[in-house]
Amino acid sequence: MTQPPIPGVIRQDVFPPPPPVFLTGVPVFLGRAATGPRTPTRLTLWPQFEAAYGTAPGGFLADAVRGFFDNGGLLCHVVRLDESKPPAAALQAALDALDGVADEADLVCAPDIVTAVPWPTDGFLEPVLAQQRVLLRHCRERGDRFALLDGIPTTDTTKVMRQCAELTGADGSFGALYYPWLWAPGGDGLLRHLPPSGHVAGVYSAGDQRVGVQRAPANTEVEGVVDLHVRLAPSGVGELYGQGVNCLRALPGRGVRVWGARTLSDDPAWRDVSARRLVGTIGRWVERFMTGLVHEPNDVRLWVRIMRELTAYLDELFQRGALKGRTAAEAFFVKCDHETNPPEAVEAGVVVTQIGVAPTAPAEFVTVRVIHGASGVTVDAA
């Protein structure tokens, strides 16, 4: 039997607010457009770009943004480059304009870098490399962004391998190189050859939404693509991938797919895109959600709180399959105690926390053994 309402008492159901959404796969596009603001603009739909920048020819910016949304991209930022400045200076100015405005962006794309000078002249590659190094350096200095770089538009794969070799190094773990170009509708709907970074950024975003940053952005069909500028043979794909170039392949019955997930790092520990992005995402989470602990008393209670919150976050990543190991203890550790915070550190107002994680690695090769015997044929995938 329902209780009659109590006079003067009103029941009100209060639901706790949902936890803050921590987005990944959010690119910032830097490029040329006929019109539009030069300050960062936040977009969630392709028509917003059309309204702000139009689709008039002038660069690949519109094409990249449209390719991003066609491939499941959720959110991006756009900055129109100041073409009155030298290309590298314009790029650096656009990156500087992002500070404090587009902090949620964790990917960087600059599809117009390859249009800096006419191609395929002998002097084409050096200006491209100079600007792509600017992007890689920016991502390394921040530590939480990843650059999607376009291979030069050529049919000579040796030039692409040279481009890759020139970009490989200390900054290389913060970027990946994609080749060849696409034959696809541009921002104005007309078919032409386009740099792949915008479409690939959409693949990153869609994968992050479905699974998370731990998913390798590879073996995924690229939507809105008719064909490729160059159709690579399997041997060519293997040669390029061995050098660190992520290829796109047109597979019969499976469409055009991203076929590689390696960074430009020369350090095996940072070879996989998913490992680099996972560590960068953990860093972003620590910076964003631990800011509330600043100015708290630097003692054991603070250390325990830090360990509790970090352990809960990393355990969630482990449960989602982002970290490898049979148990959470094998997947990660968090240490914040008297050893990491000796008296001199406490007196200086510094809290030191050590975090160790074991990112999952993508299975690039699956070994299949076919055994013929008296009882028939057995297929064993290892």
Rank of each mutant, 00 (worst) to 15 (best):
A381D: 14
C247I: 06
F69C: 02
P20C: 05
D299W: 05
A201N: 05
V200P: 02
A34F: 06
A275R: 11
L125M: 13
L191E: 09
V357Q: 10
V134D: 07
A329D: 15
A89I: 15
G242I: 07
G143S: 11
A97M: 00
E104C: 01
R137V: 12
T367N: 11
Q92F: 04
Q12N: 15
C76P: 06
T39R: 14
R11C: 13
L190H: 08
G207N: 12
L240E: 03
V258W: 01
T154I: 02
A62V: 01
L251P: 06
R192D: 07
E309T: 13
P342N: 11
L148P: 00
L95R: 06
A97V: 01
G224I: 07
P18D: 12
R145D: 00
G189A: 10
P5S: 15
F69D: 02
A216Q: 02
L149H: 03
F60A: 15
G236K: 07
F289P: 02
A165W: 13
L190K: 10
E339K: 15
R262G: 12
S84I: 08
A170C: 12
G175L: 07
A34T: 09
T168L: 10
V294K: 10
T220H: 05
Y53A: 04
W181D: 01
Y179D: 00
Y53G: 04
G325P: 06
H295R: 11
V256Y: 04
R32I: 15
G143Y: 12
K335H: 14
A201G: 03
P86G: 09
T55E: 02
N341R: 08
G356F: 09
F174T: 06
A176H: 06
M1K: 11
Q243F: 08
P86R: 12
G236Q: 14
G253F: 07
R137A: 14
A363P: 12
V368H: 01
A105Y: 02
G283H: 00
L95C: 08
V377I: 14
V26C: 00
D267L: 10
N341H: 09
D112I: 08
I6W: 12
A147Y: 03
L30H: 06
V370S: 07
G58M: 07
D150E: 03
T367S: 12
N219A: 09
G198F: 02
V213Y: 04
V366L: 14
P343S: 11
E221L: 05
K85R: 14
T327P: 11
R277A: 03
P252M: 10
R262Y: 07
T367G: 06
V237L: 09
G58E: 05
V114Y: 00
A51Y: 06
A93E: 05
L81K: 06
R277V: 07
V370F: 08
E126I: 07
H372G: 15
